[in-house]
């Protein structure tokens, strides 16, 4: 972080973090529903089908949890910083709809 070109850098970062927080459930939906389209109604394939999907689901689940934890932690961290500042960050545009 040698360069500090704009004062608004942190606000910008904050807004992108909020974007990420809003996009997380969409990522979750894509990952969670993908098997519906990939797997289809394939029940007769046999083999290691179910245990593979079980592992798949727990892996993406953990992935989503870790991602959410990171984004939430970053968001609240900047919140805490902002609490010390005089002016709070402007509410993100999507909220003003």
């Amino acid at each position: 972080m040698a360069r500090r070109l704009f004062l608004g850098r942190r606000t910008y970062r904050q807004n992108r973090l909020q974007d990420a927080a809003r996009l997380l459930p969409i990522l979750g939906m894509v990952l969670g529903f993908a098997p519906v389209f990939i797997r289809g109604d394939a029940t007769l394939l046999g083999g290691a089908d179910l245990s593979n999907w079980l592992v798949y689901y727990f892996v993406i689940w953990i992935g989503l949890i870790v991602l959410t934890a990171f984004v939430s932690w970053s968001l609240t961290r900047s919140d805490r910083k902002d609490a010390a500042d005089v002016t709070p960050p402007p509410p993100p545009r999507a909220e003003q709809r």
Partner: peptide, 21 residues
């Protein structure tokens, strides 16, 4: 029903990881 029980947890998970929204 195999993995179907997961849906009962997956739905809330999606809602909660989108808590900010």
């Amino acid at each position: 029903n195999g993995l179907e029980f997961l849906t009962i947890y997956l739905g809330p998970t999606l809602v909660f990881i989108g808590w900010f929204w």
